[in-house]
Nucleic acid binder design. Structure first.
Length: 570
RNA sequence: UGGGGAGUAGCCAAGUGGUAAGGCAGCGGACUUUGGAUCCGCCAUGCGCAGGUUCGAAUCCUGCCUCCCCAGCCA
């Protein structure tokens, strides 16, 4: 809209949150002209797993920064280890980045640079700054020293340039077995920074690569590939997580030796969430050991899992923004994420009537064959979403939880002799409770007040509760999957003596069948999100078929009554 | 006990010498045809600890404590 742009700009004047330390660094660069005012970032995932909400933070940071500074962002796959990487992951990562709402400037692969990296390695060898080492992996470890003791030089460290050149070429030609030798940078085996103790640049891997096939049998390590890849792409700000902080001197060293464009690496603390795990290793175990049903199981913190669960991209972006950027390790309360999810869904989700655990209600004074329709707002938060028709008749379903034979204080819902409102319909009063032989309540006999049509009493009398309901003869049935936290404790990884799987929540999934839905949902399509009034937000699962709808609970509505019960109950 | 980081409320997080923002959670209340949403109020005499400098310190100095990362031919 034409009026929107100026408004947004004006709002930003006053509402712009304080800049984080990364943006301040960029401002400083722009002041001093370090990169000529350019801002070029990149998101560099390794395609060895699915993206999760932790990656989303990095994606958000890189793309939103570039956007704010009029810059660009590349998507680059760090595909330097063909033993772990697969095309499946390359595809899913692209899908997820797009779904989050971002489009990259260029799609690149570290493997695009294998030739250049090889040439640069040769250059370092010529300069006497790299050498082929025939120490075994174990020996290299021994020679590296420890945290408190310096390492010692490899006996192969002083081979001549000619010999190194010859050996390295033969490495490339495949004349050596895996592990027989490596190419190492010649830096300082006594450096207090272990990353500088002659790090490995190339290792032999007789494995074909998803992109380069069998062209190579030597592959650059991440340390050798990453900085130069950024440099080649003209990246100005190379944003990464904290654990790479002490690799920065190494990347700087490589780039300085090569004399090429020098990006600024900036490290920030990755996002962690309570009641979940966010490491690839653990996520892979959850999938491979069958604790969840795949990478996109709605209980997974993966982007694909969250998507299937019904979470919106905006909710994820909001969380990233809300939690801020800093350098201190932290664990964000999952409730902050739930808040973001509810906040977005409240504004965009159409409302629907859905009775998850049905209790039959017969309106005894409502004519047997009568049916009428009520027109109700699709979304009270967004009148432009229009209205829908709800059919009403003599026999209805309400939620089992919405009736108590012997209600405790503060329980406002239906009880014997009590009057409540059926949302958008009538006041009803419970006259009789029907039980089976076991004493279970199986049906309620109620009367309605025709004068309260639409939900208001002309005499001004009030009710304390409004219930959702579905007409029996008009209802459609569905399966509803209720998800809860995957783990029972805030940090399943905090106890070093226990496997995180010991803290799996056995009740993380509850499947309900025979749920009764308003008929307007009959044509709901996978991915669509709804608010089931008074219950929560639900998304149509791809498992749905023409005859059978399946819904995933994204998140519950905030629930004052449940909170009260918890306080008094346990 | 080598090197690199970080400590501000239950959880995130501003603060850059002038007297502790904001959000989530929590607790009160208003309103409500979703116990939803919305609105109002409360919630750090205190910034890891101890000293010091200063008229004045979360911010500067000194010492200490705690936590995280690094000893892959993983990224």
């Amino acid at each position: 809209m034409a009026t929107e742009a100026p408004n947004t700009a004006a709002e930003n004047e006053s509402n712009t949150p304080r800049k984080d330390f990364i943006r301040e660094i960029i401002d400083e660069h722009n002041r001093t002209g370090r990169f000529g005012g350019r801002v070029y970032t990149r998101f560099p995932p390794e395609p060895n797993g699915y993206l999760h909400i932790g990656h989303a933070k990095s994606i958000w940071l890189n793309f939103s920064i570039a956007d704010e500074y009029g810059g660009k962002t590349n998507l680059r796959f760090d595909d330097t280890n063909p033993t772990k990487e697969e095309q499946e992951y390359i595809d899913s990562i692209q899908e997820d980045v797009r779904w989050l709402g971002y489009e990259w400037e260029e799609l690149r692969y570290a493997s695009d640079y294998f030739d250049q990296l090889y040439e640069w390695a040769v250059q370092l060898i010529r300069d006497g700054k790299a050498y082929v080492d025939h120490l075994s992996a174990d020996e290299i470890r021994e020679y590296r020293g420890t945290l408190t003791e310096p390492g010692k030089n490899s006996p192969y460290r002083d081979r001549s340039v000619e010999e190194n050149l010859d050996l390295f070429e033969r490495m490339r030609k495949g004349e050596f077995a895996e592990g027989e030798c490596v190419l190492r940078a010649k830096i300082d085996m006594a450096s207090p920074n272990i990353n500088l103790r002659d790090p490995v640049m190339y290792r032999i891997l007789h494995t074909s690569h998803p992109r380069t096939g069998d062209e190579w049998c030597i592959y650059p390590t991440y340390d050798w590939a990453h900085g130069q890849s950024d440099s080649i792409e003209g990246i100005t700000h190379s944003i990464c997580t904290l654990e790479f902080e002490d690799h920065r001197p190494l990347y700087d060293w490589f780039i300085d030796q090569l004399g090429i464009h020098h990006p600024q690496q900036i490290e920030f603390a990755r996002l962690n969430l309570s009641y979940t795990v966010l490491s690839k290793r653990r996520l892979i175990r959850l999938v491979q050991e069958g604790h969840v049903n795949g990478w996109d199981d709605p209980r997974m913190p993966t982007i694909s899992g969250l998507r299937r669960r019904g979470v919106t991209p905006k909710a994820i972006r909001d969380l990233c923004e809300m939690t801020g950027v800093s350098k201190s390790n932290s664990v964000v309360d999952i409730q902050m994420f739930e808040y973001c999810v509810r906040q977005d869904l409240n504004k965009v989700a159409p409302r629907a009537m859905a009775v998850l655990r049905p209790l039959r209600v017969v309106i005894t004074n409502y004519p047997e064959d009568q049916t009428e329709e009520f027109e109700v707002l699709v979304n009270p938060e967004d009148p432009s979403a229009g209205t829908r028709l709800l059919p009403f008749s003599r026999v209805l379903y309400i939620e089992q939880d919405d009736f108590m034979e012997d209600p405790p204080p503060k329980y406002y819902r239906l009880a014997p002799g009590r009057e409540v409102r059926l949302r958008a319909a009538y006041f009803i009063k419970c006259e009789e409770v029907i039980k089976d032989e076991a004493g279970n309540v199986v049906e309620l006999r109620c009367t309605y007040d025709p004068a309260t049509r639409g939900g208001d009493a002309p005499d001004g009398r009030k009710v304390k509760a409004t219930l959702h309901w579905v007409s029996e003869q008009h209802a459609i049935e569905a399966e509803v999957r209720l998800y809860d936290r995957l783990f029972t404790v805030e940090d399943p990884t905090s106890d070093p003596d226990k496997d995180f799987l010991e803290f799996l929540n056995p009740k993380s999934l509850e499947v309900l069948t025979g749920c009764k839905l308003e008929r307007n949902l009959a044509n709901a399509k996978p991915g669509e999100r709804y608010q089931f009034e008074r219950i929560g937000y639900f998304a149509v699962d791809p498992d749905s078929t023409d005859g059978k709808l399946v819904f995933n609970r994204t998140v519950t509505l905030r629930d004052e009554w449940a909170k009260l019960q918890q306080k008094s109950g346990r």
